[in-house]
Computed example of a mutant assay.
Amino acid sequence: MTSELLEIHPQQLNFTFELKKQSSCLIQLTNNTDQYVAFKVKTTSPKKYCVRPNTGIVKPKSTYDFTVTMQAQSVAPPDLMCKDKFLIQSTVIPLGTAEEDISNIFSKESGRDIEEKKLKVFLTSPPQSPVLTAINGDLKQEMDHETSPRKDKACRGVENIPPPQKVAEDLKGFETAKDALELRSTTDVERFKTSVDDSKELTPASNVQSSIPKDVQGLKCTKEMKLDDNFEKLKSKISFMDSKLKEAEVTIVKLTQERSMADQEKDKLQGELEALKTNSAAGKTIQVGFPFFYVCVVAIMSLVIGYLSHL
């Protein structure tokens, strides 16, 4: 084992298997040499496991940890038998090698001496809580004790009626037991009274009533203050809406007045337009008569001038 580049602990991967739950396993690599050693982790089921990190460099005389996580499984393997395996490769690298070049180091073309170590996977069932099992066992015993007389009664069916003499004896025994129980209860009450009288730590009813937490009172005050604030805000909103409604009513009245004035102006303009139309019609009739008279005068004057010119 001393000739190996890396010591691996543990030598196998142990996972606690639970349905639909992940399980993790920590692996520690130890480099006892005076050289830098690179490693790479491979598995037969890469979709089932997650290795972080799967490559790395272990410095001389130091350790390096990586975690293997098994993804949540929906089906349990038979008898928790698992055939998955992991392969850890390691090789010596020179100082200053970057982690990005590790994948090329483990390629077949590199020609390096690579050590390989195989690890098997083992699955274990989750441990059961001893407290719960003990509690369950006690409950089961109590339930068995409670149900046993019922079972006996059910098996026997109708119970046998005892003779009258036996009934009387049982009644006497019951009365004596009852008396003893009453005596015991009275003694217990007396003991309780004496213990109450002797104790000085008991608080009176007034103190009990006054021991209400101040936080509750403060909470009530804060709730009342919040209610008052909400009421004031609602009241201010209502007054604001009332003022807006009044302003809207005033604007509506102004608009109706302006509309009535516009209607009046429209009627006035229509009357003036009708008057202008009548006046224009009368002017046209006058103009039609005037040119005819003017033509007649011109004709007469032209006749007179023509007659005088012939003379």
Rank of each mutant, 00 (worst) to 15 (best):
S24Q: 10
G137I: 07
L269R: 06
S302R: 02
D144N: 06
V131K: 02
S107R: 03
A134P: 01
S239Q: 07
F39P: 12
K48G: 00
R259I: 08
E109W: 00
P60V: 02
E224L: 09
S107Q: 11
F290M: 11
S129G: 07
V131N: 06
Q141I: 11
S243N: 10
N136P: 00
Y36D: 15
V196G: 12
E182G: 07
S110A: 14
S62N: 14
M301W: 02
Q264G: 12
T187P: 05
P149C: 01
Y64V: 03
L95C: 10
R184K: 13
T33Y: 03
S24K: 03
P204A: 09
E18L: 10
E232N: 09
Y49L: 07
K20Y: 11
L171F: 09
K118P: 05
A299E: 04
N207V: 14
K120T: 15
Q287C: 08
S107W: 01
L5H: 05
S148W: 01
K237G: 07
V58P: 12
P291S: 10
I57M: 04
E109F: 03
E247D: 13
L19R: 05
I88Q: 05
E115Y: 05
V208I: 14
E146W: 01
S110H: 04
N279V: 07
F293D: 13
S90T: 12
F106P: 06
M241A: 13
L269W: 04
K120C: 10
T67S: 03
A98M: 06
L123M: 03
E99F: 00
F240I: 04
R112C: 09
R52L: 10
F122I: 07
P127Q: 06
L303C: 11
Q12G: 04
V216T: 11
L5C: 09
N32S: 15
T203L: 15
S210V: 01
K178D: 07
V158C: 07
P53D: 04
L119V: 06
D79K: 05
I88T: 04
Q12K: 05
Y36F: 14
M81T: 15
K108R: 07
M301Y: 04
K140W: 02
G157I: 08
K220I: 15
E272W: 01
D229C: 04
L255A: 15
T16I: 13
Y64K: 04
M301H: 03
V41Y: 01
Q141M: 10
P10C: 03
S199Q: 04
T186G: 11
F290G: 09
P149Y: 02
I212S: 14
A262H: 07
P78I: 05
I114H: 06
V196C: 13
D34L: 03
I286W: 05
K140I: 02
F39H: 08
V37D: 15
L13K: 00
L6V: 08
D101S: 10
L234D: 12
A72H: 00
Y307S: 14
I286V: 14
K120W: 03
M70W: 02
K42M: 14
T124M: 02
A275E: 15
L219S: 15
V253D: 15
E99N: 04
K268P: 00
N32F: 11
D101E: 11
